[in-house]
Amino acid sequence: MAQATIRPARRGRALNPQARPGNWLTILVYVILTAWAMLALFPIYWMFKNSFEPAMAFTVFPPNLLPFNPSLDNYKLLLSRTPMARWGFNTTLVSVTRTLGAIFFGALAGYAFAKLKFLGREVIFWALMSTLMIPSFITIIPQYQVVRALGWIDSYAALIVPGLTGGVWAMFLMRQFVKTLPTELIEAARIDGASEFGIFVRIILPLMKPGLAVLGIFTFMGNWNNFLWPLLVTSSINMRVLSVGMALIRGGIGEANILVMGQVMAGSTLVAIPMIVVFLVFQRYFLQGITIGAIKG
């Protein structure tokens, strides 16, 4: 980290030996970074700001950058006109169940692949890994056929069951975490007469809390934002999830109808806020998860 303070000064001198070391260069760097950050965050601000605006604010051109006449009317109208609350419940139920499933089964399988020795372990592991590249579009059509044949359309089973174990990615992420734990711990527990499942629950799970947090956060986010599968397997308005409900509201309202744009923005805000809060609270795990999930082998 000492480097962190030395490098900028050094690079300034290298480029411009006469002037005072790169002050204006450093400023330029911050200007570029801040401009890009504002650009990236602007749509989120715009959604938030517009969700409080009255309908007439949407027909002003050029639009006001700052809040014009903020109120909660859009939210009230949206909640009274659509089953937003029910969609929120459905989304939460599905996301929480699937996250718990991914954490438990992913950790269980990841632990087995990392620490237990059994015939065919490497073969099975690589067979699983080799399917990571298969696009979801291949499996989604037959999955839909099967779920329909089972009579699961428009049920929680259809939303929850396929892929409940978190899939290969969850297992892989957990395996990476368990690998870093000392094997001696497991062997000592085994000598003490602990059962294999007991070792997993009492020794492994508590030690891999950071890993479980990373997996949990990413699975929750993926499920909260999931769209195509819930769109296909639900049909009644009360079984929709938030993302599908929002997309269909827009479709029902029609693009041209600017008068309800405020409600679309309010709904969008309600869908986005929980994930933004989760991100801000668990930032560390997000940044960690991106790095760990990417390490191959």
């Binding site: 959604m47 769209f227 938030l242 997309a247």
Partner: peptide, 22 residues
């Protein structure tokens, strides 16, 4: 800055698409 650049990725792509449509 990393958090600022990453934040849009946690928002549902449906929501992002709705906002950009506007």
């Amino acid at each position: 800055y990393k958090s600022a650049f990453y934040l849009p990725a946690v928002v549902s792509s449906i929501v992002v698409a709705l906002v950009w449509t506007w």
